[in-house]
Amino acid sequence: MFGMLAGLWNYRGFILSSIRNEFVTRFARSRLGGLWMIVHPLAQVAIYALILSNVLAAKLPGVENTYGYPLYLMAGTLAWSLFSEIINRYLNLFIEHGNLMKKMSFPRITLPVIVVGSALLNNVLLFIAVLIVFAFLGQMPNIQMFWLIPLTLAVVAFGVGLGLILGVLNVFVRDVGQVVPIIMQVWFWFTPIVYPVNIIPSYLKGTMDYNPLFSIVSAYHSILVYGTAPDLHSIGITMAIAFCLMLVGLFMFRRAAPEMVDAL
């Protein structure tokens, strides 16, 4: 573990320049540039809000804002987009950089860290856009938003841990790369992002306890939509699971890194 940290520090310039180059290259020939990172998720929110808000907005308890449902949807999307980006990019990360891993000597851990840095940058830009939209719709920032800092760290830890495990497995069993996108779609709809929790039938609410993202997304809703602090008990358990999973993922990555180079 200390070797990984030393490698990250020694290659910090490479990590930062890679994040910057990735950002610049992605939108090099685009007139809107980095705004596309904001337009895509907000467009998705607008579509869902336009189609479903008339049906579901009235069922948001405690929200007096006329645009309560779009606010609810954007808050949940903010949490999910960070998690899903890390998972989806980690899934094929080592396969895509197989030639680099075989031909160059560098700390392999820098590749996942670059992805996290890029995903966090995207999420910060999206968060700024969400705040602007919230203010436009009459939902002003509140002091509870500082809770988003530890929550973001929990999302990253959970995404890194699960993403590393899936990314390593995908190197050796390529079927993983085909199954995970399907699971992610099911997971998205299994998480109360598009729909409010109160419409879930009582006999299904117990299943939410098995969804680790449920407490995180609910905390985002509490903070951004209702202006209240999250449930510390459920969040504490989720954070502990997330950081334990991250340690497992890092351990698995460290042990499998030499074998991955051979497999690639």
Rank of each mutant, 00 (worst) to 15 (best):
A58G: 15
V39A: 11
V39S: 07
L56W: 02
G34E: 10
A57L: 03
Y48L: 11
L35D: 07
V55M: 05
L32Y: 02
L56G: 02
V55Y: 05
V45W: 02
V45C: 14
G33N: 08
A58R: 15
V55D: 00
A57W: 00
V45I: 13
A46C: 06
S30F: 09
A49D: 00
I38N: 03
G34T: 07
A58T: 11
A57S: 15
A58M: 10
A28N: 14
W36S: 06
I47M: 05
I47W: 12
L52C: 07
L35V: 05
S30E: 05
N54H: 08
A46V: 11
M37K: 01
N54R: 10
V45T: 10
R29A: 09
I47P: 00
P41C: 09
N54G: 15
Q44G: 15
G34R: 07
L56D: 02
P41M: 06
L42W: 01
L42F: 09
A49Q: 01
A57R: 13
R29E: 09
M37I: 11
V55W: 07
L56C: 01
L35H: 07
W36Y: 08
L50C: 13
R29V: 11
Q44I: 09
Q44N: 12
I47H: 03
A57V: 05
V55S: 09
S30R: 02
L42I: 14
A49P: 00
R29Y: 15
I47F: 13
V55Q: 04
Y48A: 04
L35M: 15
Q44L: 15
A49C: 04
A58V: 07
W36K: 04
A49L: 03
V45G: 00
Q44M: 13
Y48I: 07
H40I: 14
I51A: 11
I47C: 06
A43L: 15
L52K: 00
H40Y: 12
M37A: 15
L52Y: 14
L32P: 02
S30W: 06
R31E: 09
R31C: 03
I38M: 08
Q44S: 10
L42S: 10
L56I: 04
L32F: 14
A57D: 14
S30H: 06
L52I: 13
L32A: 12
